[in-house]
Design a protein around this nucleic acid. Structure first.
Lengths: 332, 332
DNA sequence: TTGTAGGCGTTATCAT
DNA sequence: ATGATAACGCCTACAA
């Protein structure tokens, strides 16, 4: 049986309240007493019971990150950013796959076990999830939602602007037929990036051609298959803009398979700037998203809401940046 | 304020004990009563308070996965396997980076918040961690420890045999100078794989040459730098065996940079069979480790220990397999 | 500076 | 089949 504060109190010859004070670093305890208590606690190998503390405090030191996104490298960065923040702020991170078991998520957000929840796409835009969270009265934050709203704070980059800039860059290079491999339409970011692509086209008076747009699933394989469709066209694009780096990597592989050289014969650019971008050949020109920072900032905004549920939700837009590496070139 | 079972009891006109019975699916409640209670619970949007339950039951539905391993793809697979198991078994997974904050881990395993802990290399072999876990009397399981022992159950593949087989394969192909890029020496698996490599060499009467062995850090970059050292030798190896796929990928990149074709001029093989292995060019010949299964099995063995701390720890060895893809060839 | 009474919401024990 | 009472370990509020 583990020791309780009462055991420590008896061992130290003080009341349990004094022990509690010492353990929580409260003021108003004589140094001598404090030492006695600390010694007794150590000798009994005592640790505060978290369940009892949480029950009494109506609190928790757990933050949940809900995933399901098919792109592991995206999740990895988000998770690392969130974990780092948690360990610097006395929290711990629970990672839950939303798709795994429908009941898993419900169970997780039940009973006040989680202090708060971090949502990434596509969950950030899922009305059912948001309704459940709101129903349980549990604070949450949305990463890269389609649009910011009052339901919760949010952190994102300006996907529309970023996609527009990249498309403009491609247009500057002389490309007029620019293939777009989007993410699934259920992702708000997909729609935003698509909008940016169209804006750039409009600005350059290039007619939008839906045949040049393919919907992938943010995976290497769908990058391959979408590129295959695009490159099989009678009049194929001279550049392909993939909505994430994994799909761009797949597109590059497909090009090689067809004997099409990148970037001399075909330009391929990505989005995210995750590890694969600098590791494949040629290194990817891409849009850098500060995913770790976004996650850390999201946790920060979440904490504000945990501390004060009435505080107005903040909405942060972090800076993006075009990373020009070697996978792009002028129109062949 | 959230509703409690007492509120539900009042609403349903029964005692709170009856509510508790219904919520826990216990027998001995009339159907009619059960329905009344369930209705009342739903109307009050009631959920059981986890902290109170955990306090009373002296339990928890949380399992911790302790990471720090530099290879994300390895962790990804382990994490996915563990998460899936958790969601199928009513648990949730807390992921904690051991390096982030020294206090983070200590805090996590304190106070009975975690039902159990899963350790991966190099934590599986870390005596300080094991001592702490034992001191807190918290069940844990070790994935890929250097050697199985009574401290905890474990799951692994036979790394020594696997490395030996791969090395033998290389020898069969005519290679006599086989470079080895190991993982850090603090990883038990590194030592085991190294042992398998030497065994194969001995069997084939090939003299061990320490100049052919480089210690990497399981990262793409160290794969590159170790390969660079190896390929700069006056008498470079004709084959390189990297202790994980990330390093093998780095080695391939380095070879290309030097104008050395793989596999026609140089054979490079990896270990793990994670995503990168089938995505790079050429696809990697590697050792397949069933990482997801290992994690799921580890969770299973952990659960046995959680249920019965006195049960003898089991030690599972899961099957590995050589995956022959395109990165290997006969000696040039 | 230290201590006492009470309750957080649930489950266990024992009764009815 | 249902209920009353106690207890889990801690913290809050209020004394002393």
């Amino acid at each position: 049986m583990n020791a309780t504060i009462i055991d420590v109190a008896n061992a130290a010859g003080v009341s349990f309240k004094t022990v509690s004070r010492v353990l929580n670093g409260e003021a108003g305890v004589r140094d001598k007493t404090r030492e006695k208590v600390q010694l007794a606690a150590k000798e009994l190998n005592f640790t505060l019971n978290t369940a009892a503390r949480n029950l009494r405090r109506r609190g928790s030191n757990l933050i949940a990150l809900i995933i399901s996104n098919p792109s592991r490298s995206y999740i990895d960065n988000i998770q690392i950013g969130a974990m780092d923040w948690c360990s610097r702020n006395g929290f711990h991170l629970v990672v839950e796959d939303f798709r795994a078991q429908p009941s898993g998520f419900d169970d997780l957000i039940r009973g006040g076990e989680m202090a708060g929840v971090i949502l990434i796409p596509p969950m950030s835009d899922d009305p059912e999830i948001i309704t459940k969270l709101t129903g349980q009265n549990i604070p949450f934050v949305r990463i890269a939602p389609e649009t910011a709203n009052d339901s919760a704070p949010s952190v994102r980059i300006d996907d529309q602007a970023a996609a527009k800039e990249m498309t403009q860059k491609l247009i500057e290079l002389g490309h007029k037929r620019i293939g777009l491999i989007t993410g699934p339409n259920e992702f708000g970011v997909s729609r935003n990036r698509m909008a940016g692509y169209r804006l750039a086209l409009d600005d350059a008076a290039i007619k939008y051609d839906s045949a040049l747009v393919r919907e992938g699933a943010f995976s290497y394989e769908t990058g391959q298959s979408c590129a295959a469709r695009l490159l099989s066209m009678p009049n194929p694009p001279t550049a392909i803009f993939a909505s994430n780096d994994d799909m761009a990597a797949g597109a590059i592989a497909e090009s090689y398979k067809r004997g099409i050289a990148v970037p001399s014969e075909l330009t391929i650019v990505g989005y995210d700037d995750v590890a694969v971008a600098s590791v494949i050949s040629p290194p990817l020109t891409t849009v850098r998203q500060p995913l770790k920072d976004m996650a850390a900032r999201a946790a920060e905004l979440l904490l504000e809401r945990i501390r004060n549920q009435e505080s107005a939700p903040k909405h942060d837009v972090l800076p993006h940046r075009l990373i020009l590496r070697a996978s792009h070139g002028p129109r062949a």
